[in-house]
């Protein structure tokens, strides 16, 4: 085995306990921009905001926000807690209980995904900032390439009630690459 640590080789981390939230509507982009978030230019793209919040655009008018590790998602949690429906056509989509959130990282991410997903997720076809809403291990999953120069990394968002099954399916696919589950504390430091 190589000298890489598990996160750099092949690791699965359960981020489900961190805050995440969605917004949708014709005024959602305007509202999010005014609130200080950077937004992707096109559907099925994602951008990282300065504070570490990841914003994925799922359609012309829908956004999925993943909390930052630096504040453990507190900014998004307070965004959701303080939400009041106003005149604007911008609607809150609670995502905490609908989606589970996993992070698959390491140099084998594309090879692992190739075993359980029909879409080409290799770096040349699915570069950093890409989003794929597709079928993974027979579940509907949102795949976000949130990698960096140092670390290849996918976020996987699936039906929360199916987390136990999905985690087992991904870990099974990771087996041949020496993949292991890693505790969230290793990211939070």
């Amino acid at each position: 085995m190589t000298s890489l640590n598990p996160i750099e080789r092949c690791a699965l981390i359960d981020l489900t306990d961190l805050p995440r939230v969605g917004f949708r509507g014709l005024d959602a982009a305007q509202w999010l921009t005014a609130s200080g978030y950077s937004l992707p230019e096109a559907p099925n793209r994602a951008v990282l905001c300065g504070d570490g919040t990841l914003v994925a655009r799922l359609s012309q008018t829908e956004y999925f926000l993943l909390g930052s590790l630096s504040d453990r998602g507190q900014r998004l949690a307070s965004e959701e807690a303080g939400w009041v429906l106003g005149e604007e056509r911008n609607y809150l989509l609670p995502r905490q209980d609908s989606h589970a959130w996993l992070q698959l990282s390491g140099k084998h991410v594309a090879e692992v995904m190739a075993k359980i997903c029909g879409v080409d997720l290799r770096a040349e076809a699915f570069p950093v900032g890409s989003v794929a809403q597709t079928s993974v291990a027979r579940l509907n999953v949102i795949v976000i390439n949130a990698g960096s120069a140092e670390l290849a990394k996918f976020h996987l968002l699936c039906d929360r009630a199916s987390l136990e099954y999905f985690q087992a399916a991904v870990l099974d696919a990771m087996g041949e690459f020496g993949g292991v589950p890693v505790a969230l504390d290793n990211l939070l430091g």
Binding site: G118, V119, S135
Partner: peptide
């Protein structure tokens, strides 16, 4: 597998539709 071209998501297996 048949492939269908989704206007939002691009070409995908027909089982996704």
């Amino acid at each position: 597998m048949k492939i269908m071209n989704c206007p939002l998501n691009g070409p995908r297996n027909i089982s996704e539709f």
